[in-house]
Simulated assay, not measured.
Amino acid sequence: MEGELQRRVGRNLRAYRQERGLSQEAFADVLDVHRTYMGGLERGERNLTLRSLEKLAAQLELDPLELLTERRER
């Protein structure tokens, strides 16, 4: 389905943010992005480049594949 990968990345970012107990704005600060960009990412509206995906993963100390892989419910 078109756009599913974008939505998956968004769901994963939201899950990592919620696990850390951070607001979208605080999480955007951690990732050094604007809060509205963060919201677009979480909603799956932003089409990330691979470079951007790598940058976000590095800032979260994750393998980039972790942002692309469907997470299991915890």
Results as ranks from 00 to 15, higher is better:
residue 2 E to K: 11
residue 2 E to H: 11
residue 3 G to D: 15
residue 3 G to W: 09
residue 4 E to W: 15
residue 6 Q to G: 05
residue 7 R to A: 14
residue 8 R to T: 15
residue 8 R to D: 00
residue 9 V to T: 07
residue 12 N to F: 04
residue 13 L to Y: 00
residue 14 R to D: 05
residue 16 Y to W: 08
residue 17 R to E: 06
residue 18 Q to N: 06
residue 18 Q to E: 15
residue 18 Q to C: 07
residue 19 E to P: 01
residue 21 G to V: 12
residue 21 G to T: 14
residue 22 L to P: 00
residue 23 S to F: 06
residue 24 Q to C: 09
residue 25 E to V: 08
residue 25 E to C: 04
residue 26 A to D: 11
residue 26 A to R: 09
residue 26 A to W: 01
residue 27 F to N: 03
residue 28 A to H: 00
residue 29 D to Y: 01
residue 29 D to A: 04
residue 29 D to W: 00
residue 31 L to Q: 04
residue 31 L to M: 08
residue 31 L to T: 02
residue 31 L to R: 02
residue 32 D to F: 02
residue 33 V to G: 03
residue 33 V to W: 00
residue 33 V to L: 13
residue 34 H to C: 10
residue 35 R to N: 02
residue 36 T to Y: 07
residue 37 Y to T: 15
residue 38 M to G: 02
residue 39 G to T: 05
residue 40 G to I: 05
residue 42 E to Y: 02
residue 43 R to S: 11
residue 43 R to A: 13
residue 44 G to T: 03
residue 46 R to T: 14
residue 46 R to K: 15
residue 46 R to E: 01
residue 46 R to G: 06
residue 46 R to L: 12
residue 46 R to S: 13
residue 46 R to M: 11
residue 49 T to D: 11
residue 49 T to S: 15
residue 53 L to I: 12
residue 54 E to P: 04
residue 55 K to F: 00
residue 56 L to V: 06
residue 59 Q to L: 12
residue 59 Q to M: 12
residue 60 L to N: 01
residue 60 L to E: 01
residue 61 E to V: 07
residue 62 L to P: 02
residue 62 L to M: 10
residue 63 D to I: 10
residue 63 D to T: 08
residue 64 P to I: 06
residue 65 L to Y: 08
residue 65 L to N: 13
residue 65 L to I: 14
residue 66 E to L: 09
residue 67 L to C: 07
residue 67 L to T: 05
residue 67 L to W: 08
residue 69 T to Q: 15
residue 69 T to K: 15
residue 70 E to P: 04
residue 71 R to F: 15
residue 71 R to C: 10
residue 72 R to I: 13
residue 73 E to G: 14
residue 74 R to D: 14
residue 74 R to C: 06
